[in-house]
Amino acid sequence: MVKERSPWLQAVLLLLLILGAFVSIIPFLFMVSHSLKTIAETITRSSAIPFDPKFWPRVPQWSNYRVAWQEARFGLYFRNSVIITAITVGGIVFTSSLSAYAFAKLRFVGRDLIFTILLSTLMIPQTVLLIPNFIIVAKLGWIDRLPALTVPFLASAFHIFLLRQFFSQIPNELIEVAKIDGATHLRSLISIVLPLSKAPIFTVVFLSFIYTWNLLQWPLVVTQTPRWRPITVGLSMFITEAGPETHLRMAGAVIAVLPVITVYFIAQRQFTEAITRSGLKE
């Protein structure tokens, strides 16, 4: 398929690709430029085309971010999101690597049956779990508290599956040798399997980080005050309830997007690989 092409065709292809990239990026530029406008500018001086000077603020209002961070409480929501995401990602790596090791390397009664049952839960849509889980969490007295936002997400069949695929390829001999040296399974998981599995562990971290950070429906249901509200919920309430404060909304959106984009750019190659290989869950 790849053949010598006329330079014209090459140029047209490239131009179309650049156009596509431009469409992907414009909304982000809009987010940034409008977060730096005055409230009057967002109403009277607005455009959606970056080549139009009206797209940009006359004088960037950096103070918008201070207002969003403090008065609109995006600082608190941001902090909550960081805590929730850190706990969840840590928990998923912990529970998934233990289980994946057991399913890949240990023999115990009912192993394959249990694994199949866990996998089949992937077919259940989140909407089905929403109502019963809300009732369970309410019964446990967790509404508006941190466990409601983290505990239900600390284990994931999807990530167990992902890691097990990789762990199975690690030769059993390595573990046998360690066992002769008197190592327990926990030891060989920590000192043999995990060091060999940096790439899949990174994949688990990235995917669960994005999934948790972006989650809206569940935290919307289990938070009633700003105490543990994550940034997605804070932002959505700001949009559906507040008035015409476009500049603060956009500042909030930038704050919500920034961590994801930062991590994405740092580890872009692993990210694009991981997502093309497995896809996010939602």
Binding site: M1, V2, R5, Q10, L13, L14, L17, G20, A21, S24, I25, P27, F28, F30, M31, I210, W213, N214, L216, I231, T232, L235, S236, I239, R249, M250, G252, A253, V254, A256, V257, V260, I261, Y264, F265, Q268, R269, F271, T272, I275, L280
Partner: peptide, 28 residues
């Protein structure tokens, strides 16, 4: 899929809308 320069840059940019929180991009 063709031979084009900066392939990875395009891949990264095309995936951008998919990975950010949709609450934020929908706000735009």
């Amino acid at each position: 899929y063709q031979k084009i320069p900066a392939k990875q840059v395009f891949r990264v940019i095309y995936l951008l809308p998919y990975i950010v929180p949709s609450v934020a991009s929908a706000a735009v």
